[in-house]
Design a protein around this nucleic acid. Structure first.
Lengths: 222, 222
DNA sequence: ACGAAAATTTGATAAATGTCCAGTATTTGT
DNA sequence: ACAAATACTGGACATTTATCAAATTTTCGT
């Protein structure tokens, strides 16, 4: 089931302005269908219906369904990247305040319908679609970098690897709330308390971890 | 898309022993297909092929595909429940050691192909299938109970709600490793370190949290 | 070993899917 | 305003899907 990571995802089919708008409509509708109805309903016909278009036209702009998936995912990931950068790069904040902010931003975002639905679907799709797996990995790599930057600023004695591990731990812990406390999930009401614990304890972890301590703990465990 | 939570999931069609074995084969094959090929390949035909059977026979034992899904999920959840109970109820351990053990068991389990693949699929399916959402919720409810039991033993001053919140935090944090550090996931190699941090810091959280502190932190955050 | 119940095979059904193409309409540079 | 490039329509195509029913084989209490 190895996907072709090559030149499948062309820039954009549209050249005339009308075509460009149509492509936008299709992508928007495709995202809506994925979020509102799930991957099983992610069908050329449903997408066409969702943006009031004929099947043939969608097929004209995206001759292969896989193209649509790839262009859509690239757009989604880019949007998240931009949003993350914009929201996080606030001036006049200490490293600790920045880390708190990032944690709050991530958890607030997870509460939204879009993120809750989209990423649970992507995690599943990544199991058997190498392209999706690759993009999801790249996206979270950036998230880890941002978190790691602040962890490193809070605790400069930590090595690069230790910072990466702490960032991974914080990120994974936060993302884990998605299927449980995300949009309309069973424990969604507990998100404020979990956010509070997260900000407090992840900052505490970043502050108080000693260089070499992770290796020590790991060795002790096995 | 509201599912009928009623009497769809009959006990078992099989009456003759051969039929029983066939049903078992079907369920086993269905799980294999879901894990090895994903929800998109979860098809009567693929399942039939996976257990060397004719499509009509699978259809005879499970006249509706949704029946197969429901019986399969019930069996899966029951198996996990039993496994959890067995592994966790070790004698001669302190509450703290038990909590460490539960954390280690959960994270080790997440590393396996079965759990990594299965639960990412279930989280996605739960978005639009009420039956699956219900069973997944029930399962994690039990996990939280087990964790909460030990948290409560470690820190008896915490209220029931506080214990539940801490258990939810620990559980969600652990489950969050699935799409990142699970089977063949990008950061799978970091699981030992993450396990070490998890056991150490989740126990520390359970120990040191003061009654009323969660409410305080939550209020301070907003 | 007989016979009814259960299991299995075989083949068919309608519906839905991705892809394609001939023809028509629209857009855009000139 | 013209012509070429682009966009869109309508319909078709072969596959694949879940479900079903008649005919056959197997099972198992008697």
């Amino acid at each position: 089931m190895a996907e072709a990571l090559t030149e499948l995802a062309r820039p954009r089919p549209g050249i005339y302005s009308r075509g460009s708008e149509t492509v936008d409509s299709i992508l928007k509708a495709a995202l809506s269908v994925l979020i509102d109805e799930g991957a099983a309903a992610f069908t050329i016909r449903r997408i066409a219906a969702a943006c009031g278009m004929k099947v043939g036209n969608v097929s004209y702009h995206f001759p292969r369904k896989e193209m649509l998936v790839q262009v859509l995912l690239d757009e989604i990931v880019t949007n998240y990247d931009v949003k993350l950068e914009m929201q996080v790069r606030q001036p006049n904040l200490s490293a600790e305040e920045r880390l708190r902010l990032v944690i709050k931003i991530c958890l607030d975002d997870i509460c939204g319908k879009r993120t809750t639905r989209l990423f649970t679907e992507l995690w599943a799709l990544a199991n058997h679609n190498d392209f999706i797996a690759d993009r999801v990995r790249a996206f979270y790599g950036k998230v880890h970098e941002v978190i790691g930057e602040y962890v490193s600023a809070i605790n400069p004695r930590l090595s690069k690897e230790e910072v990466a591990t702490v960032a991974l731990f914080i990120s994974a812990s936060m993302e884990g709330t998605t299927p449980f406390l995300g949009y309309q999930k069973p424990w969604a009401g507990d998100m404020p308390a979990i956010t509070a614990i997260s900000t407090e304890w992840f900052v505490r972890l970043a502050k108080s971890l000693e260089p070499g301590e992770i290796a020590l703990m790991t060795r002790r465990l096995t």
